[in-house]
Amino acid sequence: MGLFILRRVGVMLLTALCLTFIVFWLTNLYPNLEKLAKTQGNFRMSDEAVTSYLTNRGYQQALPVKYGQWLGVLPGYVIEGSDGEVRSRCEEGKTFCGVIQGDWGFSTVFKDNVSTIVSTRLGATGKLMFWVMMVMVPGALLIGVLAGMREGSGTDRTLSTASIVSTATPEYVSGVILIAVLGTKVIIDWDTIPFKGSATSAIDDANFENFFLPVITIALYGMGYIARMTRASMTEVMTAQYIRTARLKGVSFPKIVIRHALRNALIAPFTVIMLQFPWLLNGVVIVETLFNYKGFGWTLVEAARNNDIELLLGVSIVSVFVVLVTQLISDIGYVFLNPRIRIS
């Protein structure tokens, strides 16, 4: 088991390296850098001025060298610029300063350290994700199991239709509809509007009123998907021979579902649930922007819009790790659910 985790961590690091390199390469394409120079310096810069600006700040070094410096495995540059000023990547006294050393760079938009921004924003998004999971997973499993235990029944058809509708509605549609219906007086003339259409205040003080709509918007989308998977796996399990064995042992129907079918039926959707984490990150970008909730997704959008290279890199590296860690957890959890898989 230990060896298995070690192996997976190794693979994870390798994946992270490759992915960040791709992001690094894309953000460091010349037109991007030119834009950076112009926004940071002066919009009417001549081409020569842009070149010297970039050269002085180390942007004109070879890509692998720059990547190595950002990573912290190559010594940071010290360049005596064409204007006579000596600039170095690192603070005085340090030769290595990169992601590994904890030096994630400086955000040009928020004028703050990338690491500080990423950690606070990730915390905010973590709060959102937690509540989404709390609503989505039990809800989806319940719907899936109820629908799947008697295939073709009225309950099954109703719940299946509902889950297809919910999963077929993207967040930017359901979000807008939910805000219009529950967050304004446009559709229903509320005496008091039940929910707030903006979640900005939820960063410091999340309550039912300001947090319900973003949570339910993300949850609805994933819920239908997981419920469909659970239903499929449940219907299959319910026709298995060991369910017949249990039935002919005299086990009552509720006990068949809970004791005999549930664990077997959860094996397949478990992976799907864990795969939802990356999807959640995706949905988070839209929903946070829609509800103006200043979390991780919102930061990503801001960073991309403002060509904030360092922040963009920081955000992508964290995303990569979130995805890979959940997959590791899902593999380990799978072993516990399915006794036929044993890692020795």
């Binding site: 298995a240 021979q241 060991y242 017949r244 064995t245 664990r263 659910l337 006794p339 036929r340």
Partner: peptide, 12 residues
């Protein structure tokens, strides 16, 4: 039953 493997609950 005919197939013992299929007749026993694999996760119990």
């Amino acid at each position: 039953y005919q197939e013992p493997m299929a007749s026993l609950n694999p996760a119990m």
